[in-house]
Design a protein around this nucleic acid. Structure first.
Lengths: 101, 101
DNA sequence: GTAAACAAGTTTATAACATAAACCAAACGT
DNA sequence: ACGTTTGGTTTATGTTATAAACTTGTTTAC
């Protein structure tokens, strides 16, 4: 009857940040506006959350240009991938869930 | 390439409350001290979170006695079970996960 | 060419949340 | 009867999430 709850990485246990990571796991590299559309987040909120993920080293942010307009690109790091995988593992202790892939 | 993120019930998207619900899903009815042990939470924190789950109608709290000592029992409601199931479904859109059971 | 509208974010202010510390009441041990 | 333990609740604080307001630069319309 041992039910041990693994602690959940607070950085990933947040709806928007989790969505961002989920996108980046799949898409490899994505532009800010694309992430914004996919998540439905406001630009402000997204900016803050991307900053947190970046500060933690979970993603890497590249500021470039697309023509003359600024273009912010996000990519997940190895650390981010590991953290995401660990988070999914930890969640299983709460949900009794197995990954499909 | 459609990746739609289902909104996550904020009441369940919280580590301790999720742990409580996870226990109650399995155990049907549980005493306050038991939940406290299993989750490792402080009594104060647990009291607050149980109150929120109760106010939302996700669990039902029964105050009885065990001999002369007070005994607080928690049981999940049908609403709580549905909410938990919906939460797990929603999470899948972030994790690409399937339940095992 | 300049004013209005738009794109791409950032900064800041507020509201919600999680958590721990302090507190209360009754029962038990000695 | 006095301190200790059990079983919690209330309150205060720190953190987090989020939206609203702002900034900077770029097109588009006139």
């Amino acid at each position: 009857m041992e039910k041990v709850f693994q602690p959940l990485d607070p950085l990933l246990h947040a709806e928007l940040r989790l969505a961002v990571m989920s996108l980046l796991i799949a898409d490899v590299e994505a532009e800010f506006p694309y992430i914004r559309e996919q998540t439905g987040a406001t630009a402000g909120n997204l900016s803050v959350q991307i900053d947190k993920l970046s500060s933690a080293g979970y993603i890497k942010v590249r500021k470039t240009f697309k023509g003359k307009r600024p273009c912010t690109l996000c990519r997940i790091t190895a650390k981010g991938q590991k953290a995401f995988a660990a988070y999914v593992e930890a969640l299983k202790s709460y949900l009794d869930v197995k990954t499909s892939s």
